[in-house]
Design a protein around this nucleic acid. Structure first.
Lengths: 207, 207
DNA sequence: CGCGTTCTTGACTAAAGAGTCCATAACGAC
DNA sequence: GTCGTTATGGACTCTTTAGTCAAGAACGCG
C-alpha cells in the first residue's frame, strides 16, 4: 500500500464547484482550481483526470446534493405537515438564492447550458435531476391533497411542474439581480396561489 | 466619404448572439464569429472593438428586444383583453422556449452569470431588464384587476414577480431538458392559478 | 479618371491555458 | 530500516485564442 492522498478529495470538489459556479465551465481555469486548492497541477490531474472529467464529478455530486436536499426536506412525514414542508422548502430555496446570489445558483443553467450541447451525458443528467425534483414535489402535492390542503380537482403533476418552474425562476431572477425581498415575496405568492379546496357548501353563508 | 461597410452590422450581431447563446461568453471564440459571419477578424475588430465590447452590444440589443417583445404583446389595449394578452404572452414564451431549447434561452442566465461578477454594467443592465419586465406584467395585472379577471385583494406587484419567475423558470427547466408539453402545462397552470375574484355573494347558492 | 479615405484580408504576435513529465518526497509493509 | 509504490510540485510543451498590422482593394467625390 502506497502513499495516501494528502488532501481531502471532497474539499477539492467543493472548491472546484465554487469556481465552476462563478465562472462557468469554459471560464474556469484549471490553474485557478489548482491555486485555490493549493494542489499542484500534477496532483489535480492525477486524482481527477482532465477538466471535463473533473466537471463531471462536480456536476454529479452537485445534482445529487440538490435532489438529496429536496428529498430530505420533502420526504417522509405525515400528510398533515405536507403543506408546511412544501412551504419550508420553497422558502429555503428563495433564502438560499438570496443569500449568496453570485456564489450559488444553478449549475443547470450555467455549466449545463454551455456543455449540454456538446456533452449528452450532462444533458441527460440535468433532465434526470429535474424529473427527480418534480417527482418529489408531485408526491408532496398528493400528500397535501390527501390532507385537504390543496384542491383535489387540481392536477398534481401540473402543480409540481409549476412549482419547479417557480423554484428555478427564483434562482434565475435572483441571479439577474432582483432583490432578496422580492424573492421571498415570490416564494410567498407561489404558495398562496396554490388552489385551496373549495369550501364546503355549508360554509357558504352570508354573515 | 470613404468606403462603406460591406456587411450588415445587425446581421453580424445576430450571428454573434447565436454563438454567445450557445456557448456562453468565455466559450465563444472570436474566430467562430468571424467564420460564421464570413468577416475577417480585422473587420470584426474594426467595427465592434474587442470581444467584451461586442458582447455588450449583443447583450444590449438582446435585452432591448426582450423587453420590446413583451411591451409589444402586453401594452396598449383594453382592460377587457388584458387577461387574454397575458395568457398569450405566457404561452408565447413557453412555446418559444420549447421550440429551440438549445439555441434560444436566457442570456441573463448565461453570459450574465459568468460576466456579471466582473462586469458591473452587465449586472446592472440585467437587473434593469428584469425590472422592466416586471413593470409590464404589473401594469397588465392591474388592468386585469380593473376588469375583474383577477382578485382585487391580491397584491399585483407580488403576482407580477411570481409571473416573472415562472417565465424565467420555464426557460430554465426547458433548457434543462424538460419536454415541451410540460412547458406548455406550466404556462397553463400559471394562468389557471392566478386568483380569480371571489364570486359575489349572490352567486353563493346551492343548486 | 484619379485621389483620399476607409474597409478588407490574412498572416502574424503575444499570451494564456490545458495537459505532461520527471525528479523527489512520503508513506505502508515487511 | 529498507524497499516498492504512489503522491507531489513545478517547470515544460503544445495548442488555442485574443488582438494587431500592413499591404491592397473598394468606394465616393470632384
Amino acid at each position: 500500500m502506497p502513499r495516501p492522498r494528502s488532501f481531502d478529495e471532497g474539499r477539492v470538489l467543493e472548491l472546484a464547484r465554487e469556481q465552476f459556479w462563478a465562472t462557468g465551465y469554459a471560464g474556469t481555469r484549471m490553474d485557478q482550481i489548482a491555486a485555490s486548492t493549493g494542489l499542484g497541477k500534477g496532483s489535480l490531474y492525477g486524482a481527477f483526470g482532465d477538466k471535463s472529467a473533473l466537471f463531471h464529478r462536480v456536476f454529479d455530486e452537485w445534482s445529487a446534493a440538490i435532489v438529496g436536499q429536496a428529498a430530505l426536506r420533502l420526504t417522509g412525514g405525515s400528510d398533515e405537515e405536507a403543506f408546511a414542508r412544501l412551504s419550508t422548502y420553497v422558502h429555503f430555496v428563495a433564502e438560499n438564492t438570496a443569500e449568496d446570489t453570485d456564489r450559488r445558483g444553478c449549475l443547470l443553467a450555467k455549466g449545463t447550458a454551455e456543455l449540454a450541447q456538446h456533452d449528452p451525458v450532462i444533458a441527460r443528467r440535468s433532465a434526470e435531476t429535474m424529473n427527480a425534483l418534480m417527482a418529489l414535489l408531485h408526491k408532496e402535492i398528493l400528500a397535501c391533497q390527501r390532507h385537504g390542503d390543496i384542491d383535489n380537482n387540481a392536477d398534481p403533476a401540473q402543480l409540481a411542474a409549476l412549482l419547479l418552474a417557480v423554484l428555478r425562476g427564483i434562482e434565475a431572477v435572483g441571479k439577474a439581480g432582483v432583490d432578496p425581498r422580492t424573492l421571498a415575496g415570490i416564494a410567498d405568492s407561489a404558495l398562496a396561489v396554490l388552489p385551496r379546496p373549495a369550501p364546503s357548501s355549508t360554509d357558504c353563508q352570508l354573515p
